[in-house]
Simulated scan of single mutants.
Amino acid sequence: GPPGNGKTTFAERVGEIVLGEDMWIPYAIDVNGQVIQMFDAINHQVSPNPPTQKLPTGVVQDMRWIAIKRPMIMVGGELTMEVLDLVYDDINKFYEMPIHLKANGGLFLIDDFGRQQVSPVQLLNRWIVPLETRIDFMTLNNGRKIGIPFYVMTIFSTNLDPKDLVDEAFLRRIRHKIEVGNPDVEQFTEIFKIICKIKRVPYDENGLKYLIKKWFIDMDRDFRMVHPRDIVAQMIDIASYLDIPPTMSNKELIDRAAASYFVEL
């Protein structure tokens, strides 16, 4: 869908809703003497309440495992093909797990899909088999290939037309497609009321009608779900500078906020 309507936030909330309880992962795995680091202190959050199970008498917790919250890893335009393969640390003599496999058991969000440093076709060709088989094959420095589970909820978020990015074969493998469109005037109004309440800016119906008429209808501009938050924030900043109270009844303040926010391309 179009930019500014909360696709990224929507994807993150989906992950929070559907992902299960915290889980255990090994700090690292050994493949015939080759060490691959699994735990990443940046992308993994240690669980404050590790899942527990009753251990037999005399059996203690295996300290090679760590409990983490289900990972929610997001990448954007910085994504390259190199980070999708094992990275070998020549100094410490171990491999680092690729970013998408660090998301195992959780959510992997590719934001702004189609705006990466590599083409969408390259990325999709890289993932088309793992998405279907749930196994991704990695190659070690000695040439040996290993299969690693790829149990990840993968979400692609884009404001480009999917037909311009991928072919039918790949679209079939993305089972669920959700369009996040522009709000209508009723939804836009409701969002504005909520934002005004949160930001403690007195809401004025006539002020909002003025904003909609002058800066949207007359300008033939689409509503975006992010506009209420940003315009109210702009009003607060300008009002603070002018040392006046921010209010939706001040049409001059509305004009100054909208004029500084919108950029004609």
Rank of each mutant, 00 (worst) to 15 (best):
G181F: 02
P246A: 11
K145I: 03
F94R: 09
D237P: 08
T139N: 01
P149C: 00
I191Y: 07
I178G: 01
A233Q: 14
K251S: 07
L160A: 01
N49P: 13
T80R: 15
L86C: 04
L109A: 03
T139G: 03
N49A: 15
N32G: 01
F170M: 04
T189N: 11
T52C: 14
D237H: 14
L84P: 01
P26S: 15
P26Y: 12
M81F: 00
V263F: 14
P183V: 03
I146R: 06
D220E: 12
M235P: 13
I17K: 09
P51C: 07
E21Q: 11
R70G: 04
V201F: 08
D164Y: 05
I66N: 10
F94Q: 07
I91Q: 11
T8Y: 03
F192V: 14
I110H: 00
Y203A: 07
I155G: 02
I91E: 13
L265K: 15
V83G: 04
R173C: 03
E132M: 02
F150C: 01
Y203D: 06
D220L: 10
Q34I: 12
G76I: 00
P149D: 00
Q117K: 13
P246F: 09
G114Q: 07
I148D: 00
D90R: 11
V14D: 04
N125W: 02
D222Q: 05
E190S: 13
P162Q: 02
P120T: 04
A233D: 14
Q45P: 07
N5E: 04
T154E: 00
A11L: 00
M219A: 08
F156A: 03
T52R: 15
T189K: 12
Y203S: 08
I42F: 14
V201S: 13
L211Y: 04
G15K: 07
G207W: 06
I36F: 08
F10Q: 05
I198L: 12
M23C: 08
S260A: 15
N159H: 10
Q37N: 13
K197C: 09
N32H: 03
I68G: 09
N206V: 00
